[in-house]
Simulated scan of single mutants.
Amino acid sequence: MSVVVSIALSVAAAAVVMALTAVVARRQGRVAVVDVAWGVAFAGAALVCGAGAAVAEVGTPWRTALLAALVVLWGARLAWHIGRRTAAHRGEDPRYEKLLGGTLAEVGMARAVRKVFALQGAIVPVIALPVSVGTVLSVRWVPVVVAGVVVWAVGLFFEAVGDAQLAAYRSRPREERPQVLDTGLWAWTRHPNYFGDACVWWGLWLAGGLASGWVAGLATLVAPLAMTWFLSEATGAKLIEQTMMRRPGYPAYAARTARFVPRPPRRA
Rank of each mutant, 00 (worst) to 15 (best):
A147Q: 08
V72L: 15
V222A: 08
R27F: 07
L9W: 12
G44N: 06
G236K: 12
V151L: 14
W188Y: 15
A216C: 07
V222Y: 01
A110K: 11
A207L: 06
V17A: 12
L204P: 00
A147P: 02
D197T: 14
S6Y: 03
Q120G: 00
W229M: 11
G208S: 06
A15K: 00
A12F: 12
R263P: 00
V16I: 15
R84N: 06
V55L: 13
A65V: 12
W202V: 09
Y250L: 05
G196V: 12
A19F: 08
T103K: 12
A76D: 01
T189Y: 04
R266E: 09
K115L: 15
P264E: 14
G162F: 11
V23L: 13
W186V: 13
S212K: 01
Q120T: 04
A13S: 02
G196A: 10
D93N: 05
T86F: 13
A25M: 03
F42G: 14
V116G: 01
V200E: 08
A41I: 06
V5T: 13
G52M: 06
R111Q: 12
E106C: 07
V71L: 05
A15M: 01
L181A: 06
A110W: 07
R256S: 00
L47S: 04
L20T: 02
G102W: 06
G209T: 04
R174V: 15
Q165H: 08
Q242Y: 05
K238M: 08
W74V: 13
Q179L: 15
R177Q: 10
I82P: 03
A252E: 15
L104D: 04
V24C: 04
W74N: 06
G209L: 06
L206W: 11
I82N: 04
T257F: 12
R267F: 11
P265F: 15
R259T: 06
G208W: 10
V146I: 15
G162V: 14
A56V: 05
A68W: 06
V33K: 07
A198E: 01
A22T: 08
L73Q: 05
A37M: 05
V58R: 13
V142Y: 04
G203P: 00
L225N: 03
W141V: 14
A164S: 10
Q179P: 00
R114P: 02
W202L: 10
A198I: 12
V136H: 00
P94E: 11
D182V: 10
G217T: 09
N193C: 09
V71E: 00
A122S: 10
Y194E: 04
L185C: 11
